[in-house]
Design a protein around this nucleic acid. Structure first.
Length: 214
DNA sequence: CATCAGATCTGCT
DNA sequence: GCAGATCTGATGG
């Protein structure tokens, strides 16, 4: 069942609202072969722009890397980190601010075999053949491997029909409050009061959520 | 299961 | 130089 592509209006919401509403939506990636890769968004984090010490744009920093965060809501912000990994965000509202939502985990639903291959070809050793479904997209860099997301997708306008990556809303609607768990964001240090501010959102009880589990 | 080193890019000091 | 929105395989309990 195919959903409806999320609109500019949808993305033009404050990051903590968008992060919550993205849970249950589907991230879709169209490869050049035409193949669709997709997963249900089960974990997100909100980044609150220039005032947020954990944001790449804290204090108004504007660099070639983080330029996409300043663009229209719905713009993909893909950055490279730790010398190895890509992470994917969506620019959030309001227009003109550098707010964003980090996609942290997916539950794979389409063409899982291809996603497994994309993950495996970077792995070595005995565990390479034992990639479980719950390990495919259970982290921001993992899902970028599985969906072949890299800096070439940075700046993509996900509202555009031309975009090779986008988000769909399912007809079944969003999650109820009881299905959502909230906690502090992952991997932050020295971010002052923002270190513990609860801006991480996840689908309760979902095995595909990254560590530490909420 | 918990902890840790290593991978080695980007932006700031 | 160094820390960082991370992941992996190895090691020890």
């Amino acid at each position: 069942m195919r959903g409806r592509r999320c609109t500019r209006r949808f993305f033009t919401q404050p990051p903590e609202v968008l992060a919550r509403k993205l849970l249950g939506c589907v991230l879709v990636r169209r490869l050049e072969t035409g193949e669709r890769l997709a997963g249900i968004i089960v974990e997100t984090e909100a980044y609150m722009g220039v005032v947020d010490q954990a944001s790449h744009t804290f204090g108004g920093r504007r660099t070639p890397r983080n330029e996409s965060m300043w663009q229209m809501p719905g713009t993909a912000y893909v950055y490279f980190t730790y010398g190895m990994h890509h992470c994917m965000n969506v620019s959030a509202g309001p227009i003109g601010e550098s707010n964003a939502v980090l996609i942290r985990a997916l539950e794979p639903i389409e063409n899982i075999n291809t996603m497994t291959q994309l993950r495996q070809h970077r792995r070595t050793g005995q565990r390479a053949g034992r990639l479980k479904m719950t390990d495919l997209c259970s982290g921001p860099a993992k899902l970028c491997q599985a969906l072949a997301i890299d800096r070439t997708l940075d700046g993509a306008d996900m509202v555009s029909p031309e975009s090779p990556i986008w988000v769909e809303q399912r007809k079944t609607g969003g999650l109820t409050d009881g299905e959502v768990v909230i906690g502090p964001r992952v991997g932050l240090r020295n971010a002052g009061k923002w270190t513990d501010t609860p801006l991480r959102f996840a689908m309760a009880g979902c095995a595909c959520v990254s560590r530490p589990k909420l």
